[in-house]
Design a binder for these strands. Structure first.
Length: 753
DNA sequence: GAGCACTGC
């Protein structure tokens, strides 16, 4: 205990060295105040243990509430068993009689698949019989036989296009609603609508955090007199439209949370020191450190490696520290290392990005070190550009991270901020709906028959500017007409392709233009969809080799056309794994691209598009197809900035300027028309002019682009991200001719003068 | 001169 005390209050010892000191926590935040002694998690999966899950006690109450309420909000902590048990309760209680199914949605594919197989095992059936799942590319179920179906929320949205009232389901359980993904929020809004037309449908919204009241209020028809408050579901009690809330405790262990006594100036250094302190205290259990990005993770691992070496040299400690990185850019095998148990005599210290907060679970973690920062996407609807920003986490997010310490036994979490600063953090993360680009979402809602998107009932309404921006962009693409309805020629076909609208437009155009290049565009679009940041692996220390590998496939037309070479070379080498490794290509990305490509080709055939054709090296027509989708992201070279302090050999920074509707003449020869217009030359709904001076925005080509060292006069790009240095950097760049812009998007551009 | 995390019949 003395040792522990010393560890909890290391201030005297480590304050000087690292400026990191923690407050002992007199009133520790405990995740589950009811401490439980239960068998380890691996036993939970065994069928007979299901009865011992916390949710088992609530079975009768839960079934009663589902019977009598249209919507039940289930507040359930990690380990409560809600995901695996509730669908089985419903099945046993007769909710799957008459051929109807119970659906349980998950935000992630992996979760849908693994939960389904666990439930199938518990139910004693083969996966795909009574219990099945559906995720993109993979549906393991049998019509008429499967009663419980786990699916991603994205798949359920797709299903609604064929079956808007979800007639095949008696109950829909939306799990992990607290994550507030774009698809989850869309689904909740749509389900509320469906409920009005299907009073017999039951909704269960499962959430891990304190948003129960918000959810109840959302699904409560309240005083709305147009809604029938009760209906008879056959025999039994009348159905309450006002949602019920039920709370189920979890089966995790308490986690003591500690804060810094003083703010730290460098959380990477502080996290390393904290991990080392934990290790020195020599209590058993793995350490999990949360940082924001790949670079930070690699820096921390390097520092920890040095510390580990020093410590093992000075000896005296029972085990050696084994620092391991974990982030999405690692190859599968490198990720697997972080998951495998530490060898005898070692203690793992996994340094991870946000990937470990929700997506992946590490066994054996007892200590969590939380930088309390996260890197997240932020969208600026006024400029139509996004940035990756390092931002403080929300309290809910920090709670989730801390909870990772309590899965095997009581744990500790060390937050690298003071308790005072922590109190100032937002309670919950801003829903994706309010910080994302919305074109795809709007297209999908339109396809589901939601005409008045502005009046749609949202759990969290998207910013009006983002909505207007999305409507304008869809109008410019020809997806929406002047009444903001889906167009026959573009909108309807695009809605059935699971693609970003701009990529979908490029693909449609590739099929339809005078010299088709649909084979090539299928490949490019599939590659971009499967691996938005490129098919390359990104472990550290291979930067130079990676540049060389990229340049082997690079062409002057730019990044998108270069992807074509990667694909062709991969095919020519028999899709070999060794070849991928040698070229620093991520095999997984290429295989996924292959699946996307097949699926897209099938979808195009269903739409009645012609057989895919190749343009046989006609790069101009290929680029025209690309421009048809990306013309709104056009930029022109302006000037080269020279840093007066840089050596004379320094090429300087090539600065580009966006060509967007801003009005005014332009010396470059082409300018955007003021006011977006639809494909028929009519003013697009909500088109704005001059309000934002995107034309003044200074862009440069991202250094990872194959065109980074070239200086093409005109380009279109796929995305822009703001760098740490404040530059807006274009990614997925294609060099174009100004004539192409005028020819492909005459409604958007005009010759100046 | 450089990559948070997901998803799509």
């Amino acid at each position: 205990m003395a040792q522990q005390q010393g560890f909890l209050k290391p201030g005297e010892r480590s304050k000087k060295a690292f400026g990191v000191a923690f407050e002992g926590n007199n009133d520790p935040y405990v995740h589950n105040k009811k401490q439980r002694t239960q068998p380890p998690t691996s036993h939970q999966r065994r069928p007979r243990d299901a009865d011992r899950l916390p949710v088992a006690k609530y079975r009768r109450q839960l079934l009663y509430l589902v019977e009598t309420h249209a919507t039940v909000v289930v507040l359930g902590e990690t380990g409560s068993g809600k995901t695996t048990q509730i669908p089985q309760f419903l099945d046993e209680a007769g909710w799957t009689e008459g051929g109807r199914m119970v659906a349980c949605t998950q935000p992630r594919r992996a979760a849908a698949v693994t939960v389904a197989s666990r439930v199938a095992e518990e139910a004693g059936c083969e996966l795909g019989e009574a219990v099945g799942y559906a995720v993109r590319f993979e549906s393991v179920m049998q019509q008429g036989m499967t009663r419980i179906k786990f699916l991603t929320d994205g798949v359920l949205l797709r299903e609604m296009m064929e079956d808007p009232l979800l007639a095949r389901y008696s109950v829909v359980m939306v799990d992990e609603a607290h994550e507030r993904s774009l698809a989850t929020d869309m689904l909740l809004g749509l389900l509320k609508k469906v409920q009005r037309r299907r009073p017999d449908l039951r909704l269960i919204v499962a959430s891990a955090t304190l948003q129960a009241e918000e959810l109840r209020a959302f699904f409560d028809p309240g005083r709305d007199s147009s809604v029938v408050k009760t209906v008879q579901p056959g025999p039994g009690a009348p159905v309450q439209r006002t949602p019920a809330i039920i709370s189920i405790e979890g089966r995790t262990h308490p986690v003591e949370v500690h804060f810094l006594q003083q703010p730290c100036s460098n959380y990477v250094v502080a996290s390393v020191e904290t991990a080392v302190d934990i290790h020195k205290a020599d209590l058993p259990g793995d350490i999990l450190v949360f940082l924001t990005g790949q670079q930070e993770v690699e820096d921390a691992v390097r520092m920890l490696d040095r510390e580990a070496e020093r410590l093992s040299a000075s000896s005296g400690y029972g085990s050696k520290l084994l620092p391991l990185p974990l982030y999405a850019g690692l190859t599968g095998t490198a990720q697997a290392v972080a998951f495998s148990p530490a060898p005898r005599g070692y203690r793992k210290c996994v340094v991870a990005t946000n990937i470990a907060e929700t997506s992946l679970t590490l066994e054996g973690v007892v200590y969590v070190v939380d930088s309390c920062f996260v890197k997240q996407r932020a969208y600026n609807p006024l400029l139509g550009l996004e940035a990756l920003c390092v931002a403080p986490v929300s309290k809910a997010s920090a709670t989730q991270r801390a909870g990772r310490a309590g899965r095997v036994r009581p744990g500790k979490a060390f937050r690298l901020c003071t308790a005072q600063d922590f109190a100032k953090l937002p309670d919950t993360t801003v829903p994706e709906m309010q910080r994302a680009e919305l074109q795809g979402m709007v297209l999908q809602l339109k396809a589901l028959g939601i005409d008045n998107i502005m009046r749609f009932e949202w759990l969290a309404p998207p910013p009006a500017e983002a909505m207007v921006r999305a409507l304008e962009a869809l109008a410019a693409l020809g997806v929406l007409d002047q009444d903001a309805r889906l167009t026959q020629d573009v909108g309807l076909p695009l809605a059935s392709l699971s693609l970003d609208p701009s990529l979908g437009k490029a693909l449609l155009t590739a099929f339809r233009q005078s010299v088709p290049c649909s084979q090539e565009m299928l490949t490019i679009v599939a590659m971009l969809t499967a691996a938005p940041h490129g098919p390359w692996v990104a472990p550290p220390g291979v930067r130079k080799a990676l540049d060389e590998a990229k340049s082997r496939f690079a062409v002057v037309e730019g990044d998108l056309v270069s992807l074509l070479n990667v694909w062709r070379a991969w095919q020519e080498h028999g899709c070999s794994a060794q070849w991928c490794a040698k070229q620093l290509l991520n095999q997984h990305s290429l295989r996924k691209a292959e699946e996307v490509r097949k699926q897209l080709a099938r979808a195009c055939a269903r739409l009645g598009l012609p057989e895919p054709e190749s343009c046989d090296g006609d790069m101009d027509h290929l680029r025209k197809g690309i421009v048809a989708g990306l013309f709104m992201n056009a930029a022109v070279f302006e000037s080269t900035d020279h840093n007066p302090l840089a050596p004379e050999s320094d090429p300087g920074t090539h600065v580009y300027r966006l060509i967007r509707p801003v009005g005014g003449a332009d010396a470059t020869g082409v300018r955007a028309r003021s006011g977006g217009r639809d494909g028929m030359g009519r003013a697009a709904p909500g088109a704005t002019t001059g309000a934002l001076d995107a034309g003044r925005l200074r862009l440069r080509i991202h250094s990872g682009s194959v065109l980074a060292r070239c200086r093409p006069e005109w380009v279109v790009f796929q995305t822009v991200q703001q760098s740490d240095s404040g530059w807006y950097e274009m990614q997925g760049v294609t060099a174009v001719q100004p004539d192409m812009l005028l020819e492909v998007a005459p409604h958007f551009f005009q010759k100046s003068r």
